[in-house]
Amino acid sequence: MQETPFCLRVGHFLPYSMSDSNITDFTNPSTFILLGIPGLEKAHIWISIPFCTMYAIAILANFIILLIVKLEPSLHEPMYYFLCMLAITDLVLSTSILPKMLSIFWFNSREINFSACLMQLYFIHCFSGMESGIFVAMGFDRYVAICHPLRHSTILTIPMVAKMGLAVVLRSGMLVLPYPFLVKQWPYCRTNIIPEPFCVHISIVKLACADTRISSYYGLFVLLCVMGLDGIFIAVSYNHILRAIFSLPTKDARLKTFGTCVSHLCVILIFYIPGLFSSLTYRFGQNVPLHFHVLIGNMNLLVPPMLNPIIYGVRTKQIRDRLLRFITHKG
């Protein structure tokens, strides 16, 4: 039973096969070999430039969001607390991927310890799941703010925000926890070569020479629990939100209210669309080169941490004004 090839950050699936010449007798490799982007090895140094730029922007922009929310008392509200959770998640997610990727591109450092690979796998899937959960929490915040504005402060209290954040962390952490244990129990007698620049669940499972249906079924279960349920919750929230917006009496009121949701909608689309595109490419693009699949998978993980804080910084007047005041004051 092969795991359903669907890539939405939490489940990263790539079509590839290993040559029989790579088969060895080892069962528990001490290291894995990360190929980076197969077929584009000569261009690794050039590919590293945009990746390094994206990482630098992601680190700087997310730290700025955290600093502004901390320094501005007027931003101590549920929406901005959720935004801080998103910024922290993006920082951890990008940092769990980029340093090793850049070491492959710059220094040809392809080896990764087996335990380090499992740790990277856990962080990538865990914090991707957290990001999806945070989008649900932010969607609920928008729903309450638009559909029940008079009750917003009583429903989304600070303790409630903390409980929602804790629920997001525990859900993702517990669901992903079996991944490294399942991966660790399989024998690896084929190869230790991973044709990607980082470790993800399905890439390692494909290397095992055993019946890995447990991992396949569990990977599909996690995918449905995280992406499936979160997508349904977000869709239900925006169904109520749009109905409330269209019931407003004037066009200006509708546009102004809808404008409060634009940032959230943009980051959701950035989160889901690359994964959907990668899945469709896998299913219907059999002739698409492997390096294209890998690049799309990389964009799926690396672009959102860079764009999320920029979108909220540009679209949110309070953050934009506080940043301009800070820059002007320093100037």
Rank of each mutant, 00 (worst) to 15 (best):
C225W: 02
C126L: 07
N108D: 14
M306C: 14
P99C: 04
C189H: 15
C84A: 13
K184C: 14
G231H: 04
A145R: 13
L170I: 14
N287G: 10
I241R: 00
T27L: 11
L220V: 08
L248Q: 05
L280T: 04
E111I: 01
H76C: 08
I45D: 09
F233G: 01
P149W: 09
G228F: 03
P99K: 04
A253W: 13
V176E: 14
A162W: 08
L156Y: 14
L83P: 00
A208H: 07
F326D: 08
P50G: 07
G228T: 02
L242G: 03
L75H: 04
A244C: 14
G331N: 05
R325N: 10
N192H: 10
P289I: 09
L242E: 03
V69W: 05
K330E: 12
R151L: 15
Y238E: 08
Q318V: 03
P195L: 10
A145V: 08
R9N: 11
I47Q: 01
C147I: 10
I214A: 13
Y217W: 08
I112C: 01
N62E: 13
F198M: 11
L93I: 02
I204R: 12
Q286L: 11
S109R: 03
T154S: 09
L60Y: 11
Y122G: 01
T316I: 09
S216Y: 06
T257D: 09
L301R: 00
Q286D: 10
D25I: 11
D230I: 02
G228V: 02
A87H: 07
L8W: 01
V288F: 00
F13Y: 09
